[in-house]
Amino acid sequence: MRSYAAQRAGLAVVQLAVLSVLVFVLTSLLPGDAADLRFTETLTPSQVAALRGELGLDQPPVERFVHWLGNVLTGDLGTSLISGGPVVDIVRHSIGATLVLTLATLAIVVPLAVALGIVMGTRENGRVDRTITSITLALSAIPDFVIAVVLVAVFSLKLGWLPATWIGGNLLSSPALLILPIAVLFGRTVCLLSRQVRAGTVAALNAEYVTQARRLGIPRRQLLLRHVLPNAAVPGVQELARTGDTLLGGVLVVEAIFAIPGFATALVDGVETRDIPTVQGLTLVLAIAALLINLGADLVCNRLVPRTALLR
């Protein structure tokens, strides 16, 4: 167990190193930098060149990378080229709304998906299973933004029950703001997750150790909770890590539609204004978050069903 955790953590460290290079390369590749994007109309070419020197944009990429990495390791993500403030502040200001949105969605989705998955899995091919499967299959085929556009039109424009866009204030103190965004994020994640839990439950129920446990007369309730659920949870937990990716895409769309000043909004703004340090900082934080989620998911899976050969 410990050696697995050590191996997996080792992989995560390598991943982190590669990702930091990738983040830097990808963002550096963006054609056009902040200097010529903002000032070409007001400044002469020589002034633009001077500004570029000031911002450090004229140095060779490798030198810039070493410089950037050195700063990142000391917790300094650089200075925004647009606002002039530290990127760490931008991260701090925007991360709250995104975290609230994501965690609130997960808090609703995970228990519901596990319950649905078990209900479906224990009634394999029954009427309940087929009905829920069809619904989840159909729901997961609708893009987030289509759901969002329709929900906003019906519930805020037509009926006027819920706010259509962010009107300032705290997300936590006015939960009405959260209802529509969460409803949008909820649909696809619950479908993807519950299908995995269902598949896991079906596989576990058909396994020989469950037949054996039944023969031993273990009560059904205990059988489901103690023996089937841990095994059924493995594909679910792995899917949850992958759902992080789907969810992030969804959050990006949702924040744009509801004008929520979160991580995604900051990122889109940064990319559009070529504010490279901001984009680098935000991307790095997101990549690290994704990495930790994957690491956590693999460790949890290994704990639920210890296998030595999870790493090839």
Binding site: V18, L30, V271
Partner: peptide, 25 residues
């Protein structure tokens, strides 16, 4: 190993993020 390991490293990269950066660039 040489072909599959690097891909393992790329797996956790958020996809919409990569595509957004490329699309804007």
């Amino acid at each position: 190993e040489g072909m599959m390991r690097p891909l393992d490293v790329l797996l956790p990269l958020p996809s919409l993020l990569v595509i957004s950066v490329v699309a804007v660039g």
